[in-house]
């Protein structure tokens, strides 16, 4: 694993992970208070995947996101204020209040969008990869999907297309052990998800998804290879979502022991402890960063709550270019 040399990078990764965590905790609060309506699939616990994967990208690379997309949007460089406002359906949101949590995307950051349809980004990612090839750039597309999405037909069709045409698409499979309530064991004939890349002629590796550097290293290697024209790959990240699938989820399908085990593998704790141990950051640095992020989130929340809803006339705008 590549050693972390500079403090700036360490702070950047930690800050992004903290932003995602606190953003999600705040959304949970807002849902409980009915300030946020509707559903939200929260990314808390999985921060190292988005932050590590995005650390391997350039700003002009693309991602396709999922229904659990807040973390991807933040890590790809979306502005907290606009993301928070979008989740509340406000006019100042990055999608003008028309998308919401399930369709969260600051498209100016190369995020092709969160998706209400499980597997909805898969074919799109193939197309973005094809476009890169046809336009002859060295961009790449990261396609984020959950373990559950690997059972959709479009997963297999898309990987076959990308594998056949050797497109610069890297699949980031967030294996958090469940698709809603159904465990990988009960949903997938193959539980080693990296094997699902094999028939489509692409390399795959499984990494501990709570380790931001492990994710970054694995994704970086494949990104480099894809930029050089060597085609697609898959990184399976073993991870865990802390909250229930949605607010009303009583989580009867998983055990307290399992939840406790994963709570001990907290990506933010693991990384900050490592940084302190290696002398890159002091405990005080970590605490100050945490406070700084808290302020950022407070500000974003205030911005979102104080923002107006869209004008009624917006109902009919934006349908066609």
């Amino acid at each position: 694993m590549s050693p972390l040399k500079d403090k700036g990078t360490a702070i950047f990764y930690l800050q992004k992970m903290m932003e995602i965590r606190q953003f999600e905790d705040k959304i949970m609060d807002l849902l409980a208070q009915n300030i946020a309506e509707g559903g939200s699939h929260l990314y808390a616990g999985e921060e190292a995947v988005a932050v590590g994967a995005m650390a391997a990208l350039r700003p002009d690379d693309f991602i396709t996101s999922t229904h659990r997309g807040h973390g991807h949007a933040i890590a790809k460089g979306g502005k907290l204020n606009e993301l928070m406002a979008e989740i509340l359906g406000k006019a100042t949101g990055c999608c003008k209040g028309k998308g919401g949590s399930l369709h969260l995307a600051d498209v100016s950051t190369g995020n092709l969008g969160a998706n209400g349809i499980v597997g909805g980004g898969l074919a799109m990612a193939a197309g973005a990869g094809l476009s890169i090839k046809l336009r002859k750039t060295d961009q790449v597309t990261l396609c984020f999907i959950g373990d559950g999405a690997t059972n959709q037909g479009v997963f297999h069709e898309s990987l076959n297309m990308v594998g056949t045409w050797r497109l610069p698409v890297i699949y980031i499979v967030e294996n958090n052990l469940y698709g809603m309530s159904v465990s990988v064991k009960r949903a997938s004939a193959v539980t080693d998800l990296a094997k699902k890349a094999v028939p489509y002629n692409m390399p795959a590796v499984t990494v501990f998804g709570q380790d931001v550097l492990a994710v970054k290293d694995a994704v970086e290697a494949y990104v480099k290879s894809a930029r050089a024209g060597n085609g697609p790959a898959m990184v399976v990240c073993d991870t865990y979502r802390y909250y229930g699938h949605s607010r009303s989820d009583p989580r009867v399908y998983r055990t307290k022991e399992e939840e406790k085990y994963w709570a001990e593998q907290d990506p933010i704790k693991l990384f900050s402890v490592k940084c302190v141990k290696e002398g890159l950051l002091s405990q005080k640095d970590v605490e100050e960063l945490d406070k700084f992020v808290e302020n950022e989130i407070e500000e974003a929340t205030k911005f979102a709550i104080d923002s107006p809803l869209p004008n009624d006339a917006e109902l009919f705008t934006d349908l066609f270019a």
Binding site: G89, A91, L102, L309, P310, L319
Partner: peptide
């Protein structure tokens, strides 16, 4: 229903 995809904003959803 209005001939548009359903918007997130609660006021627009009601209007749709």
């Amino acid at each position: 229903g209005a001939d548009v995809p359903m918007p997130k904003a609660p006021n627009l959803e009601k209007l749709a």
